[in-house]
Write a protein that binds this DNA or RNA. Structure first.
Length: 508
RNA sequence: GGCCCGUUAGCUCAACUGGUAGAGCAACAGACUCUUAAUCUGUAGGUUGAAGGUUCGAGUCCUUCACGGGUCACCA
């Protein structure tokens, strides 16, 4: 029944889309003429010899005379981005999304019939050109076309060639248009791809294995957040999209996989902002026989190495700031940071009720605050935005760290750190809590808070406690937000700029 | 969710205090064999996001709604 309803909606949308604009109708006419001329408008593969980028990178530096001597034959595909028709000759640019290459089309070279056929091509069409490389008077690398084949019609007009596509909403909704018009967008995602593959290299070199753990979980755990809920028909059970892979990765550590990592999506049913997308990519890694100090060292090493590999330097621009990844990074205890940036004397924090009172001014009315939550509020309000250079904020209260081992020196603190860069939380790590009885107590404490109405408190995971009962060796573990890391390295202020298809409300 | 801003031709943008909705690119017709934001001549293209309201008259003012951006709150 639901299916039928959906079908009706689809049909109506198909109908509105079939209302063609004047410019689209002009393209339809040209396409029809191509069909009448016997052109295959959805051709099979053609054996091209180069990409635009290959030609540009291989031949741009070659001198005009040498290029003419070489008579380099190419067969290159690309999307037409601009056309300059001048009677019996035409210049146009084709793009592979990354680079542009000019083509020089002469009526006397390709023949009358071919030349006239080109008038049926529009900006946006994809073609492949066979020809010889040369350089124009102004030294621009160009293909002198001998022939060309039609590969695909663009049935809509493209955005304006000079300004490109500016409308942010359209850029996200039609990312393909963004990629066609704005080549720097492709650069963001090429960097993202390189960054992830460099991370894999780093862990692979250290003997880690990459694993995949469930995204659909009966008990969502490993973080304090609201989950997305779904239902499995055959099993008749509720399932949740994971908010973190943490508890499964630690189960693997119990099982003797001593160095594991996972790079994949987690999902949190929370607000959307320039730093939050409901689905986001996290790196999580766990290593037995290490602790949170080792995690700090690895984090410094990893991100420093990424900076050198991606940007060739340890200092990168971010907005009006310059971020330095030079080691060692600043380390500051949570309570010290709180006191330092809020201006509250350390003694003030001994009065727990006073702190809750103080913090309640910064949250919406009716929010019930525990002491730990109040500290977190003060941290977000006073500390976070001031931490521009990479800073490890260490030893937060145990109360808000239900999965971390308590500190040896101070049992109220957790052996844990959060990494803040440019005011963003980039990473979160701890010495993993291995005591099943203690874990049970922490879960029960969280359950109490859930009863009080905190639906982001951690759920009790009996199966996980049982796994701990088999023995989790001392281990350090960490999660790093990949999207935010990419934001840093691409100098972007919005997470939507580094996610290909960020979540938007569907149109209409 | 609160507040602020935006939504005008396919795209990028104009339109004073309410008074006939314009330009560039793109499109269409024509000229042009080294152009490159090509150039030149001409033509067409609009339910100003939607629905109400105020007014002699609304792109402009008011209300509601939709979508987006920013920000605060919530939240990793």
């Amino acid at each position: 029944m639901t299916d039928q309803k959906e079908e009706k909606i689809d049909l109506r949308e198909a109908h509105t889309q079939s209302e063609r604009s004047e410019q689209e109708l002009a393209r339809d006419v040209k396409l029809e003429k191509l069909v009448q001329e016997g052109i295959d408008i959805h051709p099979h593969k053609v054996d091209v010899t180069h990409s635009v980028t290959e030609i540009v990178s291989q031949y741009t530096s070659i001198k005009k005379e040498d290029l003419e001597k070489q008579q380099t034959e190419v067969f290159v595909p690309g999307r037409i981005l601009s056309i300059r028709r001048m009677g019996r000759a035409t210049f146009f640019h084709v793009s592979d999304g990354r680079n542009k290459l000019q083509v020089y089309l002469r009526g006397d070279k390709v023949g009358q019939e071919s030349y006239e056929r080109f008038s049926l091509f529009d900006i946006g069409d994809i073609i492949a050109i066979k020809g010889v490389l040369f350089k124009t008077r102004t030294e621009e690398l160009t293909v002198l076309a001998e022939s060309f084949v039609f590969l695909a019609k663009c049935r809509h007009p493209l955005p304006e060639k000079f300004h490109g596509l500016q409308d942010v909403e359209l850029r996200y909704r039609k990312r393909y248009l963004d990629l066609i018009m704005n080549p720097e967008i492709g650069d963001i995602f090429r960097l993202r791809s390189t960054l992830i593959s460099d991370i894999r290299k780093y862990f692979d070199e250290r003997g880690y294995i990459e694993v995949e753990t469930p995204m659909m979980q009966a008990v969502p755990g490993g973080a304090l957040a609201r989950p997305f809920k779904t239902f499995h028909n055959a099993l008749g059970i509720d399932l949740y999209l994971r908010i973190a892979p943490e508890l499964y990765l630690k189960r693997l550590t119990v099982g003797g996989m001593n160095k594991v990592y996972e790079i994949n999506r987690s999902f949190r049913n929370e607000g959307i902002s320039s730093e939050h997308n409901p689905e986001f990519t996290m790196l999580e890694f766990y290593e037995a026989y290490t602790d949170y100090n080792d995690m700090m060292n690895m984090t410094e090493e990893l991100i420093n190495r990424l900076s050198l590999a991606l940007k060739g330097t340890e200092e990168i621009p971010y907005g009006e700031h310059t971020i330095s990844f030079k080691r060692p990074w600043k380390r500051m205890k949570f309570m010290e940071a709180l006191s330092y940036y809020s201006g509250l004397a350390p003694s003030r924090f001994e009065n727990k009720e006073g702190i809750v009172e103080f913090a309640s001014d910064f949250v919406s009315e009716g929010t019930s605050l525990t002491y730990g939550k109040a500290l977190d509020v003060i941290f977000d309000k006073f500390v976070k935005q001031n931490l521009i250079q990479p800073t490890f904020i260490t030893n937060p209260p145990k109360e808000i760290s239900p999965l971390a081992k308590a500190s040896k020196e101070n049992p109220d603190e957790a052996e844990r750190f959060e990494l803040v860069i440019a005011g963003m939380e980039l990473a979160n790590a701890f010495s993993e809590l291995s005591d099943p009885e203690e874990q049970r107590k922490r879960f029960e404490q969280q359950a109490e808070e859930r009863k009080k109405g905190d639906d982001e408190s951690h759920r009790i995971d009996i199966d996980y406690i049982q796994a701990l009962e088999y023995g989790l060796p001392p281990a350090g573990g960490e999660g790093i937000g990949i999207d935010r890391l990419v934001m840093l390295f691409t100098d972007k202020k919005s997470i939507r700029e580094v996610i290909l298809f960020p979540l938007l409300r569907p149109k209409k």
